[in-house]
Design a binder for these strands. Structure first.
Length: 581
RNA sequence: GCCAACGUAGCUCAGCUGGUAGAGCAGCGCAUUCGUAAUGCGCAGGUCGUGGGUUCGAUCCCCACCGUUGGCUCCA
């Protein structure tokens, strides 16, 4: 990634510069904290102000910032004692800062950064002086709870971008523009892939023919790969009786994400927020032997979860979605091999969709947890070993696991360098216990199986949204809803066009003839904007010679060739590009 | 859920301080038969998100609700 997108201390200093400017404009302002954002693009600062800011205020703040830059005021590091810091902050009336000060552990040095008459409790580091902040722009303002706690007061967070030069700032702004151009909500509408209907409800996705075609291709690929990898497929109901969810613990621990029950013959039933209890019922349907394990049971299971109204977002955060779910039931001896296998399989699946760069979190046992410590440790070791073996860089999130088991979360990096969390592989020591799962071992006794819950793509909705942005709507050939559009020059070539189309269709290519009476330029433009990978242009010359003129979405005109040559080329392209890493 | 902004035709948007709406694209019709990113002419299309209020009169002002967007928290 370019340096200009990765300059943390510069953005940090820009946040302070903005805070200094705001302090001058609003003398009574109470400061919280300001930082660069993790995506490498923005900085922000949280303020408690007497009035609401609006984008119209940005001009005045920026102007004040520019004046401070012109004066080239140095950032000075000032170390002081806790008592002194307390005095300074309470004199300044900075109550949030006082609380932040109390968070700094004893023994750690306490520093202020002074910039002219503005000073701020901060660990730094900063750039030398305000003159090192020549290029910046404020971008948005939003509410933000103090410490992210909705019971605490809401502060105003102002976001901006900053760079070491105007040119570098333009790189950042261009990246932001490019992200906006690729936004799956915009492309989803333009390419007629999906919609969300107010009359139906927020967070509920309608897959239009083109989107549904892509989904169907993804699902077909997904199923084929799962069968090859030794999975079996399950389908399970969308609702289940309250008792099931009582046993699973969902009604105790997950109720706020579940929809109200419906009454069926006097009994309450719940729409499923997860698939696991159903898979478990299938497991429990008969006595299981160690000889038949492991079970690898997968389901494209559609679940419904209540999400707060403010958080639903396009395809990325919805209220009904289809998980590419699977549960693996295995013996302790098989567990380590299964983990490795799942991880390897998961990465190959993601590579097939064009993702090359992965990172992971390994979340370990929290203080409050179920299951024997020994099992936790064994499982955590197996997860770490698998990550090492597959050479996936990971960070340990100590104590960050769910109460029921340790897990790996895999993030991918997309074409714009943004990270998205997709896959999750998690142990579950809770449900086997609650449902009293067992298998008969070679000693003839009952044993508790290991249960591993995993999703690779996450959910089809979310994954689709990420794919749209990753490819900017130009899906690879194998996934394109329409692969080839045949463009007769005039209606005199229509019959030939139909013949060409028929032949390609019989070879399972997704082909459409544009029979409208537009000029060829207009037809090409339409096919280009609709991201059709290939166009066949047919005029009198092609009819005469029995040829076709091929045009590629990306490369443009490729000249005349025989239909056989085209079909040969396309059939070679019509496979998922495998990169087995 | 909370804070803020927004909601006008299928889409993208215009509509000065209140006098019941307009463009481009898309759609439909007709003409055109054209060589690698927009052929011309015409037609049709809107309870101005919903409900209430203020007013002689509301797309415009006020209130409530619904939805969207940017965030916070959370998450597949």
């Amino acid at each position: 990634m370019e340096d200009s997108l990765d300059n943390d201390s510069l953005r940090h200093s820009a946040a302070h510069l903005m805070a200094a400017a705001v302090s001058r404009l609003f003398p009574g302002v109470k400061l919280d904290i300001g930082q660069p954002t993790e995506d490498g693009l923005y900085f922000y600062y949280d303020f408690d102000l007497p009035r609401r800011l609006a984008p119209e205020d940005f001009g005045a703040i920026e102007k004040e910032m520019r004046q401070l830059v012109k004066r080239a005021i140095p950032f000075e590091r000032v170390e002081c004692s806790r008592a002194e810091a307390q005095t300074r902050l309470s004199q300044a009336g900075q109550t949030y800062k006082l609380e932040r000060l109390a968070d700094i552990p004893d023994g750690q040095s306490i520093t202020f950064y002074r910039c002219g008459d503005f000073e701020d409790l901060c660990r730094g580091p900063h750039v030398g002086s305000t003159a090192d902040l020549p290029a910046f722009k404020l971008t948005s303002v939003a509410g933000s709870y103090y410490r992210g706690d909705e019971r605490k007061p809401m502060l105003q967070r102002v976001y901006g971008v900053a760079a070491e030069s105007d040119a570098a700032l333009k790189v950042i702004l261009d990246r932001i523009d490019e992200a906006a151009r690729r936004d799956h909500r915009k492309l989803g509408k333009e390419l007629d892939l999906y919609s969300i209907e107010e009359t139906v409800g927020p967070g509920l996705i309608h897959w239009h023919p083109r989107g549904a075609r892509i989904r169907s291709l993804i699902e077909d690929f997904w199923r084929r790969e799962h069968f090859r990898a030794g999975y079996e497929l399950l389908y399970s109901p969308h609702i289940g009786r309250a008792g099931l969810w009582q046993t699973s613990g969902h009604l105790d621990f997950y109720a706020e994400n579940m929809y109200a029950p419906m009454d069926i013959d006097g009994y309450p039933y719940y729409v499923k927020p997860m698939n696991c209890p159903f898979h478990i019922q299938i497991y429990k349907g008969q006595k299981r032997s160690y000889r038949e394990l492991p079970f690898r049971w997968a389901e494209l299971g559609t679940v419904y979860r209540y999400e707060k109204s403010g958080v639903v977002h396009g395809l990325l955060r919805v209220r009904g979605f289809t998980q590419d779910d699977a549960h693996i039931f295995c013996t302790p001896e098989q567990m380590e091999g299964e983990i490795r296998r799942v991880l390897r399989f998961g990465l190959s699946m993601l590579r097939a969709f064009g993702f090359e760069s992965f990172s992971a979190y390994l979340s370990t046992r929290p203080a409050k947890a179920v299951g024997e410590v020994e099992r936790w440790e064994q499982a955590t070791r197996a997860l770490a070993a698998a990550l090492d073996q597959e050479q996936v860089a990971y960070r340990r999130d100590e104590g960050g696991g769910a109460f029921y088991g340790p897990k790996i979360d895999i993030k991918i990096r997309d074409a714009l360098g943004r990270e998205w969390q997709l896959s999750t592989i998690q142990f579950d020591f809770n449900l086997p216990e609650r449902f009293d799962l067992s298998y008969i071992g070679d000693d003839g006794k009952e044993h508790r199986p290991y249960m591993i819950h995993r999703a690779l793509l996450g959910s089809l909705e979310r994954f689709f949204g990420i794919l749209i942005e990753h490819y900017a709507g130009s899906f690879p050939f194998w996934m394109a809803p329409e692969q080839v559009r045949v463009l007769p020059l005039t209606e005199h070539q229509l019959e030939y066009a139909e013949q060409v189309c028929d032949r390609m269709r019989r070879a399972d290519l997704r082909v459409v003839v544009d029979a409208r009476s537009d000029k060829i330029g207009a037809k090409i433009r339409r096919a280009q904007t609709e991201r059709v990978p290939y166009m066949l242009i047919l005029g009198p010359k092609e009819v005469e010679a029995g040829m076709v003129a091929l045009r590629a979405r990306a490369e443009g005109d490729l000249g005349a060739m025989t239909l056989d040559a085209v079909m040969d080329r396309l059939s070679r392209e019509n496979v998922v590009v495998r990169n087995e890493g």
